[in-house]
């Protein structure tokens, strides 16, 4: 299978204080595919994901070196506008965190921030993306109820709709199903498989089965180091590195 590169990571190092969370990572993330980052907890999966939209630099005492190219532009270049980078990516976090406002306003938040004021247009956007995240039918009669009243699974789909509404190119998921029940997880996974036609998707997970169900491309991290990466059928079925073999067999976790 041939891959077109969307995000290109080159020699990325991330330090929290003196602790080196990512060690010299170089990897290409393919366009319009699902890339799954696997590895034991604390291995830097989330850090790698959050470097893509530069949420890492809002933490205290973080130092980043190396380059991440997105559409040919190094996102760590000081001249780059962060909001512009972040607008290109929708983030789904481990637990859904709806904004403290109504369902409607949650989805409309991003478009409003980016300057859409027209009521009709906003209404159309909200409906479109709630449908795309298959939440519309459940909430269409109570769009102005607080988002916090939804169930966790619904909240996560709302967060997906909220992220899609800024029309990103990339969806980042940080263990996006870990707080959800099996049924809700399945719905989110189903969304991903449909969305990959239009979006590049990067998901962090520690659930190997989920990786097998979703991945086109796999990145395996261990203690901040990139051990192996490649097409899913290579890595998950026939890994070359000893460490990857052990992880997939469940020896290290």
């Amino acid at each position: 299978m041939e891959f077109k590169t969307h995000i290109s990571v080159q020699n990325l190092d991330v330090f929290y204080g003196t602790e080196r969370a990512l060690k010299d990572i170089t990897v290409d993330i393919p366009d319009k595919k699902i890339t799954v980052i696997i590895g034991p907890s604390g291995c830097g999966k989330t850090t790698l994901l959050k470097s893509f939209n530069r949420l890492v630099d809002s933490m205290d005492e973080v130092k980043v070196s190396g380059k991440v190219f997105l559409d040919g532009e190094n996102i760590f270049d000081p001249k780059v506008e962060i909001t512009h980078i972040r607008k290109k990516m929708g983030l789904l976090s481990q637990k859904p965190f709806p904004l403290p406002m109504s369902i409607y306003d949650n989805v409309a938040y991003g478009p409003r921030i980016h300057g859409i004021r027209d009521k009709k247009e906003l209404g159309r956007i909200v409906e479109h993306y709630l449908k795309q995240s298959s939440l519309w039918d459940e909430v269409k009669d109570r769009l102005h109820a607080p988002a916090s009243r939804l169930s966790l699974g619904q909240q996560q789909r709302l967060c997906l709709a909220r992220g899609l509404a800024v029309e990103p190119e990339i969806i980042l998921g940080d263990e996006p199903t870990s707080a959800l029940d099996p049924k809700s997880s399945q719905r989110i996974e189903q969304r991903f498989l449909e969305l990959k036609r239009e979006y590049t998707i990067v998901i962090v997970t520690h659930i190997l089965r989920q990786a097998m169900r979703l991945a086109d491309y796999v990145v395996f991290l261990y203690l901040g180091e990139l051990i192996e990466h490649g097409p899913a059928e290579d890595i998950l079925v026939d890994p070359k590195e000893e460490m990857t073999k052990e992880y997939i067999k469940g020896i290290i976790s």
């Binding site: 607008k87 990516m89 983030l91 976090s93 965190f97 800024v166």
Partner: peptide, 26 residues
Amino acid sequence: PYEVSEASLALGATKWQTVKHVVIRK
């Protein structure tokens, strides 16, 4: 919770927009 601010930042909001619309409201 920091994650709520993070959600707003991830949508491309500036720090001040996040404070104004999300943190103060919460």
